[in-house]
C-alpha cells in the first residue's frame, strides 16, 4: 500500500464511521492535538467527530535526513470522537484491517500509557498500541484540556503514519517509503530534512526568536482578554513552536524551561476558558 493510499484508506474508513474529514490547521505545531479540531473541540458538551492528517514539527528530532527513523517534520493521522463511542477500540482494530493489517495475523498489544501535555495542560489515560513490537498509535481518553475537566470525554487516536507505512511496505528507512509507484517519501522530504535540521540546530536566530516570543505572548494575552480566544490561540501555537526551536538550539536552560512551559499553558488556559464562555458552556 502506497503512502498516499494509506491516507486515503484511513480517510475513507473514518468517513464511514461518521467523522467529518477536515484539513490541517495552517500553522506549525508539535502534534495533532494542538490543532483546533482537537484542542477546542474536546471542550464543551457538543458532539464532535473528526479525522484529519496533520503535519507536525519537532525541531529537536531532526537528524539531517541521516537517521531512518527520526525527522523534524512528519505526519500524524488524527481521529477525535466525542463522546467516545462504546466500541471505539473495535473501530480502531477495524481501521487496521482496512489498511491491510489483519488483527489475527499479528501481535497487537494495548500497553498502558498515561498521556500528558504540560504545555497544553492536558492529560488522559489510554495506551500505546503496539503492532508486532512497534508502537503505531497513541490511544487516549482525554480527561483534561487546558486544565479544564472534560465531560463528555473524547477519544483521540493518533496514528504514526510513517511508521505504519514502513511496516506495511517492509522498508527500513522512512525515506524509502513509496508515496506512489514512482515517488518516494525521501524525494519529497529528504532535502527538507537537511535544510530544516541545519536551520533548527545551527542558524535559527535565537535573539530574534526570544524577542518575538515575548511579543507573541503579549499579543495572545491581549486577544484573550478581548474575548477572541480563537485568534489568541494562534499565538499559543506560535510561541509553542518558537519554544521548540529555541530548545533545539539549546537557548533555553533547564532551569528556565518550566517558566516557558507555564507561559504557554497559561495562555492556552485563557483561550480554552474564553472559548467555553463564548460557546455558552462555562468551565467547570
Amino acid at each position: 500500500m502506497h503512502f498516499q493510499d494509506l491516507i486515503f484508506t484511513l480517510q475513507d474508513f473514518w468517513k464511514q464511521k461518521g467523522c467529518i474529514i477536515t484539513q490541517p490547521y495552517d500553522m506549525e505545531k508539535g502534534a495533532a492535538t494542538f490543532s483546533h479540531h482537537t484542542f477546542f473541540r474536546s471542550l464543551g458538551s457538543k458532539p464532535w467527530n473528526a479525522a484529519y492528517i496533520e503535519p507536525c514539527r519537532r525541531p529537536k528530532d531532526g537528524r539531517y535526513g541521516e537517521n531512518p527513523n527520526r525527522f523534524q517534520h512528519y505526519y500524524q493521522y488524527q481521529v477525535i470522537m466525542k463522546p467516545a463511542p462504546e466500541n471505539i477500540q473495535q473501530m480502531y482494530l477495524e481501521s487496521l484491517e482496512a489498511i491491510g493489517i489483519k488483527v489475527k495475523e499479528h501481535d497487537i498489544k494495548f500497553n498502558e500509557d498515561d498521556w500528558e501535555s504540560p504545555t497544553l495542560g492536558a492529560s488522559g489515560l489510554g495506551w500505546q498500541v503496539w503492532l508486532d513490537g512497534l508502537e503505531i498509535t497513541q490511544f487516549t481518553y482525554f480527561q483534561h484540556m487546558a486544565g479544564i475537566t472534560l465531560n463528555p470525554i473524547a477519544a483521540e487516536l493518533t496514528y504514526g503514519l510513517e511508521r505504519i507505512a514502513m511496516y506495511i511496505q517492509g522498508v527500513n528507512s522512512a525515506f524509502d517509503i513509496k508515496w506512489n509507484d514512482r515517488v518516494t517519501y525521501g524525494e519529497v522530504f529528504l532535502e527538507n530534512e537537511r535544510e530544516f535540521s541545519a536551520y533548527n540546530f545551527e542558524y535559527a536566530d535565537t535573539a530574534m526568536m526570544l524577542d518575538v516570543l515575548n511579543k507573541y505572548y503579549a499579543e495572545g494575552c491581549r486577544l484573550a482578554q478581548l474575548k477572541l480566544p480563537i485568534p489568541a490561540y494562534d499565538f499559543v501555537l506560535k510561541i509553542s513552536h518558537l519554544f521548540n526551536l529555541l530548545d533545539a538550539r539549546k537557548a533555553i536552560s533547564i532551569a528556565e524551561r518550566p517558566t516557558y512551559i507555564k507561559k504557554i499553558r497559561d495562555l492556552a488556559k485563557m483561550c480554552a476558558e474564553g472559548y467555553m464562555e463564548n460557546i455558552g458552556g462555562a468551565a467547570r
Binding site: K104, E105, D132, G133
Partner: peptide, 18 residues
C-alpha cells in the same frame, strides 16, 4: 503474544526488526 499463532514467523521477524 496474545491471540493465537497465525503468521508467527512473520511476527517474530517484525519484532526482530524493531
Amino acid at each position: 503474544r496474545d491471540g493465537g499463532e497465525e503468521n508467527m514467523d512473520f511476527v517474530v521477524k517484525q519484532h526482530a526488526r524493531v
